[in-house]
Write a protein that binds this DNA or RNA. Structure first.
Ligand SMILES: [Mn+2]
Ligand SMILES: [Mn+2]
Ligand SMILES: [Zn+2]
Ligand SMILES: [Zn+2]
Lengths: 141, 141
DNA sequence: TTTTAATTAATAACGATTATGAATTAGGAG
DNA sequence: CTCCTAATTCATAATCGTTATTAATTAAAA
């Protein structure tokens, strides 16, 4: 997980501008260890920048993905989640609301990493996911 | 992977009608070991049933999912794929076009299954995915 | 300070999927 | 077999997350 300073350097290096909007979005992604949706990021950044557009959120997210700084977790019907942790790890996901949590298991992560390196190609990403209704969605049914 | 007869029995058991449209859709899903999109199924079934609606395809897919007979593989921006093989296995997926292939590795599947059983809850599904641009999408860029 | 290409923000467009409702039909009762 | 009815189909509209478009703004280099 990168620091804000590292991200700024990265943006400059690759010829991208460092705007206050981008910094605010990165702050949310890289400070809190959560898996926010574009709209959740939008709502939070709006508190600091009341005129920011949801469009800017999406554009920034796509830029950060292209730079390999974050990964998208997309699902059918519900909003994608964005994760600043791009190293292989397991997610526990509610298929109804998309609520996403990390499931830490260093042993399994190592097994998976070994498995990946043994492939005869280099993947551009991977996902390890377990589905389970969250408490809220279980109650509703 | 179930046979058509088993599916018919299952539908009857659960009080669902066995219609020619449903049979045609199931035939495609359970005969070919592929990962078709709703539209691909629609185009194929249309050859036998020229008046079938894409809506019927989706309704049938949702029914089969509710019965646990198939699993949906959903991605951001591109159509979901449907898989008649619901047991844990690894997919190699092109993030651009969604082209999906099974990657068979019995050893790893076993490791994963063991890992799943050790959890203190019973997941309703899981996904093991590796992303890699397919030959077509690599060429285009 | 000036310049300019990159970025933002507002809005329109898109596309996959779901919702709606009238017409049809599978399957059970008689 | 015939009738009945709830389930299903089909056509179409609606939804909604995301992308495309474009005029106004701005970061950052000269
Ligand atoms: Mn994570
Ligand atoms: Mn498969
Ligand atoms: Zn939930
Ligand atoms: Zn591809």
């Amino acid at each position: 997980m990168l620091t804000l300073k590292q991200i700024i350097t990265m943006l400059h290096q690759k010829g991208h501008k460092v705007t206050p909007q981008r910094l605010a979005i990165c702050e949310i992604l890289f400070s809190y260890k959560s898996h926010p949706t574009a709209d959740e990021i939008y709502k939070r950044v709006s508190q600091k920048f009341p005129t920011i557009s949801l469009s800017t959120i999406y554009q920034t997210l796509n830029l950060l993905m292209k730079l390999g700084l974050i990964q998208e977790l997309g699902f059918p019907n519900i909003s994608s989640r964005y994760d600043a942790n791009t190293s292989p790890h397991i997610h526990i996901i509610c298929p109804k609301c998309g609520n996403t949590q990390d499931y830490e298991d260093k042993k399994f992560e190592e097994l998976w990493s070994k498995f990946i390196t043994k492939l005869n190609f280099k993947p551009i990403g991977q996902r390890l996911e377990i589905y389970k209704y969250c408490d809220k969605c279980s109650k509703i049914g």
